[in-house]
Write a protein that binds this DNA or RNA. Structure first.
Length: 607
DNA sequence: TGCCCTTGCGCG
DNA sequence: AAAGCGCGCAAGGGCA
């Protein structure tokens, strides 16, 4: 058996990598005994856009680690595979691993769900440092916590992959992707660089878990809750969303036919593609006057973003340019749907699903985020959300909190004027409209703007009203809502961070000049507390009805639920019940809607 | 080719 | 006194 005697963070570390056929089960069980708490990591082949759910994805090794000893098991050896399985199945053994990657891989390969017994160090890291987005990968963390050897081993593996690739491809370097693809698939499972890299990971992870818990500022109940939410997120990713493939292909075909046609027309006439940044120069030569046209702030060139191309039609263009302008407008109207449907189809796995990632604690405010594809920002209007349908025999139900951020803000501030209106079933935007004597749309903008820490400049810009008027409105708002103003001042005085209603810690973030953005704290308090409330409802769904697993997707202030066809009423009632409660004397309300299209088919969109 | 940054836009 | 908040993704463009 190959054994590395090495050092990690100034402490001895041992990595055992048994060769196929020479596995010592007793020695393994001695180091990694059932009932313990172990770092866990898996090594697989290169991951495509479909992640663990790609038919071609497979794990090659699995590693378990204590704080000083790791075992790297080669899964081509049936004995080692059996030992790994037995340990993973043991209900008394706990694991920690970084991100959902390992939990999902284990479930895909063996059907074992360890998510209830796995602590995600990525989640712990987000709790310890909510403001350090993108810097919580395991290598960076290990380095920060005094274990630079992990990053070094990673670098050595990269070099090895390049070497392996060149050996097999006449010395050619290949692209990053091709090197990774080749390297992960073919590196020998007994190569010392590979086994050392693989072995250090679970040891580092196991050491990091308690360090991260200690360095965070959250009380223990938050950790418990986040572990639960993270488990739910893993379940949602594993299940994925069923795709209506006919619907999606139809959408792609109809939209792509238009974009291809218009793109070809534009290129024929101008020599530029529709999206070329130089297309404007052609218009310039054909009578366009860009002196008062919106410009890209970076290049200073005319910008064809948004609805800007429509402005071309107001110009004195020659007939040819007018035709191109119309083609460009048509192209842009269909481009978005093409990109989105292509992304969905790219992620489609052979089970007909898209396993979008749901990050249970991504934002600084702990709001969840979705990626690959991002389901949380698919347009509400239009047919794109309709690509996603419930499982056979099921129906989707959606329930939104009613104006939750404004209500939470009113409650936290103790703003009685607002609270009275909420109790009376009135409209907060209308209240502002009446009090400040401004139109309701402007009042609505003002309500949100001020809750987000904005000021007169922002109102001026966004509402397109004169700065003086914006200043007047802001002053009026502050005079009218004195308690909101008081809360704003109180929050601005907190230079380190704030605590939400569940005592979650949210740090003050810095602007590009390094100054604390204390003005954002009101929004942090409101946004993050609203996140607490959504999780609160989700947990109620579990404790009152045992229905947490019915959640199909959370969208900030909205829960989408999948219900069996014959229990729709029951699920609707449960959802309404769990999302309706009193918060600090303010009613929080939600109503459940069944999502069924005009043909009686349930899909993720309104009829 | 690869990396990094910005802009614009969808959602809340 | 003033300061719009949180995300992810595509595309463009500078740079090595």
């Amino acid at each position: 058996m190959a054994t590395h005697q090495t050092s990690l963070g100034g402490r001895a570390a041992v990595v055992h990598a048994p060769e196929s056929g020479s596995f010592d089960a007793d020695a393994f069980a001695h180091d990694i005994a059932p009932g313990g708490f172990y770092g866990l990591d898996v090594e697989g082949v290169y991951m495509s856009e479909r992640g663990q759910f790609d038919d071609d994805f497979r794990i090659r090794m699995i590693q378990f680690g204590t704080v000083d000893t790791a075992w790297v098991l080669d899964l081509d050896d049936p004995e080692q595979d059996r030992a790994a399985q037995a340990l993973l199945r043991d209900e008394s053994t706990w694991f920690c691993s970084h991100t959902k990657m390992d939990t999902l891989s284990v479930r895909v390969r063996w059907g074992i769900d360890i998510s209830g017994r796995n602590t995600d160090t990525h989640v712990l890291a987000r709790m310890a440092a909510p403001d350090e987005n993108a810097k919580v990968d395991l290598k960076t963390l290990a380095t920060r916590y005094g274990m630079p050897e992990l990053a070094q081993a990673d670098k050595a593996l990269d070099d090895l992959f390049l070497e392996l690739y060149q050996d097999a491809h006449d010395g050619k370097k290949g692209t990053i992707r091709s090197r990774a693809e080749y390297g992960w698939a073919t590196v020998p499972t007994d190569h010392p660089v590979y086994t050392l890299y693989a072995g250090l990971d679970p040891i580092a992870c196991r050491r990091l878990a308690p360090m991260l818990v200690k360095s965070g500022k959250n009380p223990v109940h938050i950790l418990r809750t986040e572990h639960w939410v993270s488990r739910q997120a893993t379940r949602i990713v594993y299940d994925g969303m069923l795709v209506d493939q006919d619907w999606t292909h139809d959408l792609l075909d109809t939209n792509k036919r238009v974009t291809d046609e218009q793109n070809a027309l534009i290129e024929d006439v101008t020599g530029y593609k529709a999206r070329s940044p130089k297309l404007w120069t052609w218009f310039d030569d054909h009578g366009a006057d860009f002196s008062r046209f919106p410009k890209s702030s970076r290049t200073g060139n005319p910008s064809f973003e948004k609805d800007n191309p429509k402005l071309l039609l107001d110009m004195e263009l020659d007939a040819e340019a007018r035709k191109v302008a119309e083609a460009l407008i048509e192209f842009k109207a269909h481009q978005y749907a093409v990109t989105k449907t292509e992304e969905i189809l790219k992620r489609l796995t052979s089970d007909g699903r898209v396993h979008a990632n749901l990050n249970s604690i991504e934002a600084v405010t702990a709001r969840m985020s979705s990626s690959g594809p991002n389901l949380q920002n698919l347009p509400k209007k239009g047919p794109l959300r309709g690509c996603f349908i419930p499982d056979p025999g099921h129906v989707l139900i959606r329930s939104d909190f009613e104006q939750v951020e404004l209500r939470v803000g009113a409650a936290l501030a103790g703003e009685w004027r607002m609270i009275d209106v909420i109790h009376a079933g009135g409209d907060l935007h209308q209240l502002t409209s009446d009090e400040l004597n401004i139109p309701r749309p402007l009042a609505k903008m003002t309500n949100f703007l001020l809750a987000y820490g904005g000021g007169a400049n922002a109102l001026n810009r966004q509402a397109g009203i004169p700065l003086e008027q914006a200043q007047g409105i802001v002053a009026g708002y502050r005079n009218t809502y004195t308690q909101i103003q008081r809360l704003t001042r109180r929050m601005a005085g907190l230079t380190e961070g704030i605590r939400t209603i569940s005592q979650r810690w949210v740090p003050v973030t810095l602007d590009s000049a390094g100054n604390p953005r204390t003005y954002a704290s009101v929004n942090y308090l409101i946004q993050s507390s609203a996140r607490d409330l959504l999780v609160h409802s989700w947990k109620l769904l579990e404790t009152r009805y045992g229905l947490a697993d019915a959640i199909w997707l959370p969208v900030h202030d909205e829960l989408v639920v999948q219900a069996p066809e014959d229990r729709v009423d029951e699920y609707c009632a449960a959802l309404s019940d769990c999302m309706t409660f009193d918060f600090w004397g303010v009613p929080i309300e939600a109503e459940a809607d069944v999502l069924v299209d005009a043909n009686g088919v349930s899909r993720w969109m309104d009829a």
